[in-house]
Design a protein around this nucleic acid. Sequence first.
DNA 1: AACAATGATGTTATATTATAACATTTATAT
DNA 2: ATATAAATGTTATAATATAACATCATTGTT
Lengths: 152, 152
Amino acid sequence: MRKGQKKLSASLEALKKAEAICESNGLKLTKLRKQVLNLIWKKPGYVKAYDLLDELKKVDPSAKPPTVYRTLDFLMENGLIHKIQSVNAFIGCPHPDEHNECYFLICDRCQKIEECCSTKINNVVSSTSKNNNFTPSKVTFEIAGTCQNCLN
Amino acid sequence: MRKGQKKLSASLEALKKAEAICESNGLKLTKLRKQVLNLIWKKPGYVKAYDLLDELKKVDPSAKPPTVYRTLDFLMENGLIHKIQSVNAFIGCPHPDEHNECYFLICDRCQKIEECCSTKINNVVSSTSKNNNFTPSKVTFEIAGTCQNCLN
DNA sequence: AACAATGATGTTATATTATAACATTTATAT
DNA sequence: ATATAAATGTTATAATATAACATCATTGTT
């Protein structure tokens, strides 16, 4: 498989899932939202909001920060993308149809992110929360470092 | 014990530890750095950089953003405070003398943060990293929600 | 003491990230 | 067709953070 191919199909896959999810939830995946979702998937690594804005401006010069942030909000609310807090950036979610507690391996060098799911986190979260009488609502778990590929 | 007392002693405790750490590492805990560390500990919950700047300006009107951010950098580098990525804010570290992988329970309502340490996280981080041939360098684990006190 | 070197702080300017508030357009349901 | 709600457009500004260079303070060396 050539470079980029996997990405391409992942992107198409993501769009299909997004359409299915919106369809079944009565949400509108508008042209703008599709464009933004595609732009996010097109980039190999994570994407910054203002880079997205620059890309968007190429096809719609009237795009402005709220255009992007509102669209990102929609995509996040519906689980189609994730915000990575430690770098203020966004990535597409490869499995928006499954709601897992996920975490992220973020490569400092190539900006690529691996999304991982593990019940272990759920366990840590729920046991700690119980111990502290804490009611959790949002988990942020991000591991920055260097990926295999960049080490070589 | 009256309200505030626990906090007060925690703050003094933190300062003592900071002094000891700097002493033994040949670092200078300058007046400015002490002031900032104290301001961080004085507040019950997490502190935003620009709120800190406002406080600082009360005693030193010439304080500016770099004043604060540089000082925060110093305190972070030396493990005396933590940055909480999901809210862009800072808290004092209660055990700067022990280097544990920690995580945080962040109350959305009162802004108080509980710092927790658990080897389970280390396990998740290292096993996942191994599985993905990933070399981790920085872990961000933050759980937002509501604390016991605010639920009542 | 004079000096160089380093580290800390001061200062100006600007970059980056994000949202509030209100106007207009588009889609949907009755 | 028309009222309603949702989406997008637009202007302005808030909030977070850093670059770059100047000055001052501390320390160690001659």
